[in-house]
Amino acid sequence: MKGHRDESGMVLDIRTLSSPARSVGLNRFTDESVEAAASVSGTDVTCENQTNVEDSLKKINFALQDSMNKEREEQKRQLDYIASQLNFLTKEREELKRKLVDFAHYAQQGWLYFNGSFYYISSITKTWQDSRDDCLQRGAVLAIISNTEEQEFIRLQQKVMWIGLTDRETEGVWKWVDETPLTASFWYSGEPNNFKHRNEDCVVINHYYDYENNWNDAACENLNFWLCEKDM
């Protein structure tokens, strides 16, 4: 190395300096070189660290955002479920209120309640068709008996009454007034029989009250009491 620029900007030729001065010059040059290298090296480390920190922050932010999205979705799902349950309970409450109103209304008019239905027993007699029409005007139908429990309840009323069963459409094919076919039946012994070859196309609860099976086919023009049924 032939020369070195001092702080004043002058270029010194180290070879012309005395030994002590030459040592001082060399030491100063070496220190400055080390400081410059360290400065450059430090800059590189700082940039690398900053990049790592930014990547870590991005990952953390993504994880937080994903967690927040999942939490929002779960909260929305829970809110939707609560809303559906509230809607269901509201409808159920309204249905119970309606049933209570109906119960009070029909009970005041003398209807009997049994197993989800109201029953009206007439106090006068009419033909089967007129009886059916009366039930329809009351928002009901001639009684449809679908099981043993219902038959027992009706039998215990101990009254000869029309029910909603007929084979007027096709002889021997018994149907209820709602067009459903006959399944469970409670015919009295020997019935139906078109007694004395008469056209007996309508069914009446007969006076054999001590028997579970007490249905009888009769002429639809006969006058009998009748039984209306209204499903709650």
Rank of each mutant, 00 (worst) to 15 (best):
G3E: 04
D6W: 11
D6V: 10
D13M: 12
I14G: 07
T16W: 04
L17Y: 10
L17T: 07
P20Q: 15
A21S: 15
A21G: 10
G25E: 15
N27H: 11
F29P: 00
D31K: 12
E35F: 12
A36V: 13
A36F: 13
A37K: 11
A38D: 14
S39K: 15
V40T: 09
V40C: 04
G42I: 11
D44W: 11
T46I: 09
T51S: 15
T51W: 15
T51Y: 14
V53D: 11
S56T: 11
L57C: 09
L57Q: 12
K59L: 09
I60H: 03
I60S: 03
I60M: 02
N61C: 06
A63S: 02
L64P: 00
L64W: 01
Q65Y: 01
D66S: 08
M68F: 12
N69K: 10
N69P: 00
K70Q: 12
R72S: 07
E73Y: 07
K76P: 02
D80F: 01
Q85N: 14
Q85F: 12
F88P: 01
E92C: 00
E92T: 00
E92A: 02
R93D: 00
L100G: 00
V101D: 08
D102H: 05
H105E: 10
Q109K: 07
G110E: 13
G110R: 14
L112N: 05
Y113E: 00
F114L: 06
S117P: 00
Y119G: 03
S123L: 03
S123I: 01
I124N: 11
T125Y: 07
T127S: 04
W128R: 08
W128E: 02
Q129T: 07
D130V: 00
S131N: 01
R132W: 02
R132H: 02
C135Y: 12
C135P: 08
L136W: 09
Q137A: 14
Q137W: 11
G139A: 03
V141G: 02
I144Y: 02
T148W: 06
Q151K: 11
I154N: 00
L156H: 07
L156F: 05
M161F: 09
W162T: 06
W162E: 05
W162D: 05
I163Q: 08
I163M: 07
T166F: 03
R168N: 03
R168M: 02
E169W: 06
V173M: 14
W176K: 05
E179V: 09
T180I: 12
T183Q: 14
A184K: 13
S185E: 15
S185Q: 13
F186W: 15
S189C: 14
S189Q: 15
N194E: 08
N194L: 10
F195H: 12
F195Q: 09
F195R: 12
K196T: 03
K196R: 09
H197F: 04
R198C: 12
E200G: 01
C202N: 08
V203D: 04
V204N: 04
I205H: 04
N206C: 05
Y208H: 13
Y211S: 02
Y211M: 00
E212W: 07
A218M: 10
A219N: 08
A219S: 08
C220M: 11
E221Q: 13
W226I: 04
W226E: 03
C228A: 05
E229W: 07
K230N: 00
D231E: 10
